[in-house]
């Protein structure tokens, strides 16, 4: 039987606005009890959108080091700390590290550093460099908590040893966020993610909550449906949004396919770090780096599947920052070859 040819092309391609509309309607319907899938679960903290998007462009500093790894393929800590310092000076416009880090932290702060320890973890070398940076602002080493999920460690050793269980409050959010820390830093890895499209700064906060599961059944935070679009709701929880002052993205060795479980075939030594205050802008830049890398690897179009809806939802629904590259001031420093963005 010969297939019937219909020559009237119709608009079926998934557009950003179309899927955001769907996502927003889904959330609205859920809030009205229509779907039973509300991210605004009564048992959890309620995300609160920002009143408005950040004024002007969001500044993202991307810095790369060609010799970021030593002979054994491990991150070279001194070089990592050096490029982090350069990036912080560029982000703040300050001329010293002390001044740069003091833009974000006061000596009396207790700083929670949200790293990622699952699968594509934050490099301990970068975690320690961030901790040393915070100390430049006068924060005592023992007042710096490095943690992911329910495992925390204090000071520089927290980059590798996390034997304290901080626990969760009654609404399933880490006590580090709600009780211990006066300031937060978000230090994620960079990966393409099987369910969410990408997993960078916005998604890293999922590691600060508990009582979630892949089916969303009985979960306090129902974030897994719709390609994990409602991951964007977690950094909109006021306790996180108001305390998080800085994003430092580990793009030293990103994963451009198949995450979160790692196939080293899809890791590459990009040697990058991104610093920003806008988590959506940081994610948007990483998304483009990953998209370009995939295209380069495949030698043709290879979109991120599923599309990272949560990045756009974070902008349009929660107004956490800019996903549109026209609204991002991207500063590119260091090793330029293979920058990909």
């Amino acid at each position: 039987m010969t297939p019937v040819y219909h020559d009237e092309p119709t608009s079926v391609k998934l557009t950003r606005r179309a899927f955001l509309k769907d996502a927003a309607l889904g959330a609205t319907g859920a809030a009205l009890g229509l779907t039973g899938c509300s991210p605004f679960a009564e048992a959890g903290h309620t995300p609160v959108p920002r009143a408005e998007l950040p004024q002007g462009k969001s500044r993202v500093v991307l810095i790369r080091e060609e010799e970021a790894f030593d002979a054994d393929g491990m991150p070279h800590e001194e070089r990592v700390e050096e490029i982090l310092q350069r990036a912080m000076l560029e982000l703040t416009g300050e001329s010293t590290g002390e001044a740069a880090w003091s833009n974000f932290f006061k000596p009396e702060d207790i700083v929670g550093v949200k790293i990622n320890v699952m699968m594509t973890p934050t490099s301990p070398e970068l975690s320690r460099s961030v901790a040393r940076g915070i100390m430049k602002a006068g924060v005592a080493e023992q007042n710096i908590i490095l943690w992911d999920r329910n495992d925390a460690g204090y000071g520089l050793t927290g980059a590798t040893v996390r034997d304290t269980k901080p626990g969760y409050d009654s609404k399933s959010l880490s006590r580090i966020v709600t009780e211990k820390a006066t300031a937060l830093v978000n230090v994620p890895g960079t990966k393409v993610h099987w369910l969410a499209g990408i997993g960078v700064a916005l998604k890293n906060w999922v590691g600060a909550i508990t009582n979630i599961n892949v089916t969303d059944i009985g979960a306090v935070y129902k974030i897994h449906g719709d390609s994990c679009a409602e991951c964007a709701s977690i950094p909109a929880i006021p306790a996180i949004r108001e305390k998080c002052r800085l994003v430092v993205v580990d793009a030293l060795r990103p994963l451009f396919h198949g995450g979160p479980q790692v196939n080293p075939r899809y890791l590459w030594p990009y040697g990058g770090i991104l610093v920003a205050t806008d988590p959506v802008a940081a994610d948007a830049v990483c998304m483009r780096i990953l998209e370009t890398k995939r295209r380069e690897f495949k030698g043709g179009d290879w979109p991120i599947n599923p599309p990272p809806k949560h990045v756009f939802l974070a902008e349009e629904k929660y107004r956490l920052g800019h996903a549109n590259m026209d609204k991002i001031e991207l500063v590119r420093l260091g090793w330029q070859e293979g920058m990909l963005v």
Binding site: M119, R149, H193, W194, L195, A196, V214, H224, P260, Q261
Partner: peptide
Amino acid sequence: LSDYINGGAEA
């Protein structure tokens, strides 16, 4: 399995 592959168990 989520305790081992957080976010990847569904695969």
